[in-house]
Lab assay of single mutants.
Amino acid sequence: AVSDRLIGRKGVVMEAISPQNSGLVKVDGETWRATSGTVLDVGEEVSVKAIEGVKLVVEKLE
């Protein structure tokens, strides 16, 4: 699937994400809805860990 190529890629949070609410991330110039187990603020760099349906699962870049 086209989304599989995104796993491991870096992105930037465009709309804040929390465990309760999905947000938006931009990866390779495309905007995706994303979820995370932690709070991520706009502008934070993330990496794509998995894909669930049409949402990316991301975590903060260390």
Rank of each mutant, 00 (worst) to 15 (best):
T31G: 05
E59Y: 11
V39L: 13
S18H: 12
K60A: 11
L56K: 00
V13Q: 00
L24C: 06
L40H: 12
V12W: 12
V25T: 03
V2R: 02
I7Q: 03
W32K: 03
A16F: 13
K10Y: 13
T31Y: 09
S18D: 09
E62W: 12
E44R: 05
T35S: 11
T35L: 14
R33L: 14
K26E: 12
P19L: 07
A1G: 11
V46P: 01
V57W: 10
E15K: 13
V12E: 07
D28R: 06
I17W: 02
E45T: 13
E62K: 08
L61E: 10
N21Q: 13
R9V: 08
A1F: 08
S47A: 11
T38G: 15
V54N: 11
A34T: 02
V27E: 00
D28I: 13
S36L: 01
T31E: 12
N21K: 11
L40P: 01
D41F: 13
E15C: 05
E30G: 12
D28G: 08
N21T: 14
K10I: 15
E59S: 09
L56C: 04
I17Y: 01
G23A: 02
E30P: 04
L61M: 10
L61V: 13
E62I: 09
M14G: 04
W32H: 09
M14C: 05
L61Y: 13
L24K: 12
D4A: 05
W32S: 02
T35Y: 06
V27G: 01
V48Y: 00
S3P: 11
E30W: 04
L24G: 04
K49S: 12
T35M: 10
S22E: 15
I51V: 10
I51R: 07
I51K: 05
Q20K: 08
A50F: 06
E62A: 14
K10F: 07
E62F: 15
D41G: 13
Q20H: 11
A50V: 04
L56V: 09
V58T: 02
T31I: 15
G37W: 05
T38I: 08
V39I: 09
V42T: 07
P19M: 06
E15P: 00
V42C: 05
G43F: 08
S47Y: 12
I7T: 04
I7G: 02
R33Q: 14
V12Q: 08
I17R: 01
D28M: 09
E62L: 14
G43E: 07
W32V: 03
V58D: 00
S18R: 14
L40C: 05
G11E: 01
D41Q: 15
T38K: 10
T31W: 09
W32M: 05
V25D: 00
A16K: 14
K55T: 14
E45S: 11
L40D: 01
G53F: 04
I51N: 04
E45F: 09
V27S: 02
V12K: 08
D41P: 10
L61S: 12
K49G: 04
S36F: 02
G29T: 06
M14W: 08
V46E: 00
G43D: 09
K60L: 08
G29K: 15
S47Q: 10
V39Y: 15
D28S: 08
E59N: 06
K60T: 06
A50H: 07
A34S: 04
K55P: 02
E45M: 14
K49C: 05
V27K: 01
G8P: 02
L6N: 03
D28W: 06
K60S: 07
E44Y: 06
E59I: 15
V42G: 04
D41W: 10
S36Q: 01
R9M: 15
L56H: 01
G37N: 14
T38E: 13
K49F: 06
G43Y: 07
L24N: 04
S36P: 02
S18F: 11
K26Q: 11
W32P: 00
S18C: 05
E45I: 12
A16D: 06
G23D: 00
E44M: 11
V54W: 15
V13K: 00
L61D: 09
K49N: 06
E52I: 13
Q20F: 14
L56Q: 00
L24Q: 08
S47K: 11
V25K: 00
I7M: 05
S47M: 15
S3H: 10
E15H: 07
S36R: 01
P19F: 07
E15Q: 14
R5N: 13
S18Y: 14
I7Y: 04
K55I: 13
